[in-house]
Design a protein around this nucleic acid. Structure first.
Lengths: 128, 128
DNA sequence: CAGTATCCAGTCTGATACTG
DNA sequence: CAGTATCAGACTGGATACTG
């Protein structure tokens, strides 16, 4: 194996490591509801039910799982108030808010190019 | 419902539509091997076996599925040469190459902030 | 070389029902 | 209000074997 082969392998394998930065991020925001929650909280803190109402199709269980995952990642913060009835607010952390920046870049690309992607998909459906 | 509520709903629901641009992109590149393939092809066209060899852990079936999906999206192109033994090359399309730009933004964010994410995850593991 | 064909275990997601 | 518990079906990624 030449030296440049070794370098190639190191670069190629990086994205495969489970803790590869890009994969960590992409896999998280690629999940079903993650991006929705992050974008929804961009307008400010929301309570569980308010978040759920903005979707209308997600179950409590799945929304909870999504929120727990994002909280574990430090992207959102959960604040429970000791009241009755209980009140819980979710907000973006500074870390979560900083993610909105590159996310905006992806959104921009998506909005200009996804029509091409969808058109391409349909052409392939016809052939399949 | 006030007018601003209606606008909120329209914005919130957009990311939920199956053809929402951001979701289309994020879900595709969030898949297990997609990002790897896109980044690997940034260095130039590769044959199936070369692509597979750079990973070493993916099966032919799964790599094939990934390539088919990316091809259907118009992000990569498959070129088969009528030779024996068969030769097939995969390359990024201009569309696929253009995706590398916003992807670089996400990578940059990931590389600077993922340590925080992983640290956060570990703190939550201790508590769980 | 570049795949295809089968089969399988684990995961993801959701429906439904219940609770401090 | 803000969840948890349980169950079930669909989907994913992978192991293994085979082929034009």
């Amino acid at each position: 194996m030449t030296q440049s082969d070794a370098i190639d392998d190191a670069v190629a394998n990086d994205v495969l490591r489970p803790d590869c930065p890009s994969r960590v991020v992409m896999q998280r925001i690629g999940e079903r509801w993650s991006m929705f929650v992050i974008l929804a909280l961009d307008d400010g803190p929301l309570r569980f039910t308010a978040l759920k109402a903005r979707v209308g199709v997600v179950t409590s269980k799945v929304l909870t799982e999504t929120l727990r995952a994002l909280e574990a990642d430090g992207l959102i913060a959960r604040q429970a108030y000791a009241e009755s009835p209980p009140r819980v607010e979710y907000r973006l952390t500074p870390l979560g808010a900083s993610l909105l920046v590159p996310l905006a870049g992806m959104r921009a690309w998506a909005e200009t190019h996804v029509p091409e992607v969808l058109a391409s998909r349909e052409r392939h459906l016809v052939r399949a």
